[in-house]
Amino acid sequence: MKRFIFLMLAGLSFNSFAHDYSGVLPAEASATDFLAVSCDADGDMIPDKMYFKISSSDAMPLISAQVAKGNFATTITPSRGGVEIYQGQGQYRITVDKNGVGIVSYSIEYHCESGGNHTETTITRY
């Protein structure tokens, strides 16, 4: 029983570190999911970056995400793998879109970090 509870807690703990979001873009080429990830201070830990990864099991059309914060923007494709975006504390705006007509499902992984430690991470879907 103790072992079961430990495993359960371990699972919860893991889930709280790994932030995932899944979505499906409808067929039209203009389809765009608009998200925002807020990286907030966690006690004394001030986030210095956001880790972001997008993947899709659908080959076409090609999916990509744009992450923007302040005067910085970058495009992240599944082939780029996980990307660390050093733009500090605050809100990272994310658009997820594709390069043509067709339904595409995707999943993203994201978390805010401060010197390698996870900090407060909140996602909003607009």
């Binding site: 080429a29 203009s30 389809a31 658009t95 594709k98 390069n99 043509g100 607009y126």
Partner: peptide
């Protein structure tokens, strides 16, 4: 591709 963002809305185009 290009995206426009205004407020809480975003659109994409090729």
């Amino acid at each position: 591709t290009a995206q426009i963002i205004k407020g809480q809305n975003a659109l994409n185009t090729t």
